[in-house]
Computed example of a mutant assay.
Amino acid sequence: MNTDITTSSAPKFPVPHKNFSLEIKGNKTEINISSYEDHFLVIATQIGTMGTILHARKDEGVSINPTFNVSLIFGKRDEPMLGACARQLIEHISLSGSSKALVLSLGLKDHSTETLKGIIYAVIDNCMW
């Protein structure tokens, strides 16, 4: 995995965000992280479109151990690793102390574990929570 990250210096977007690209397994991967009042929006694309969209949140309850809910909004239903990617990110968000939910869009050419791990690491390294 090549982790050369380039950052965009585009005009101000009205929502706090980070936009960068990196190469994962030979595929240019564009990542945008936006921080809204109650959600984080993470878009990772290798195909120039949004792709599969997932929603992940921490369930508030009386249990000591947190539980997380990941649901597919639309897209590939036969790719369980996409849901695992969303779960890893929402767990990291929760551990950082944020209670915001996550909307994750994955438009990928390659759905391998290595690609998804590369996306998770890149998002965590550039997190806004």
Results as ranks from 00 to 15, higher is better:
D110V: 00
K18G: 05
K117W: 10
S8Y: 12
G107A: 01
K117A: 11
L116R: 00
A56K: 02
S98Q: 05
N2R: 15
D125W: 13
A44Q: 05
S105V: 06
M1A: 13
F74I: 13
L116I: 09
A84G: 13
R87L: 15
S8A: 15
P16L: 07
V70Q: 02
T115G: 00
S99I: 06
M81C: 09
H92L: 11
G51L: 01
S21N: 14
L72Q: 05
V123I: 12
N19I: 07
T29K: 03
G51M: 03
E91P: 00
I53L: 13
R77T: 10
A86R: 01
I53M: 11
I31G: 05
L89V: 06
L102R: 05
I47Q: 14
D110L: 00
T45Q: 09
H39S: 09
P14S: 10
E79T: 08
T52I: 11
N19E: 15
G48P: 11
L22H: 04
G75K: 08
L41H: 08
V15K: 00
D110H: 00
Q46R: 12
L22I: 04
S9I: 05
L102I: 05
L106S: 01
P16E: 12
S63E: 11
R57M: 15
G107N: 03
H55K: 10
S8N: 13
Q46K: 06
T67R: 03
L89M: 02
D125F: 08
F13L: 14
A10I: 15
K28N: 02
L102V: 03
E37G: 06
R87H: 10
H39C: 06
T7G: 08
I119D: 09
R57H: 13
F40L: 03
N19F: 09
H39D: 13
Y121Q: 14
T7C: 09
I120V: 15
G97H: 08
S21D: 13
T6V: 15
H55G: 07
T67D: 07
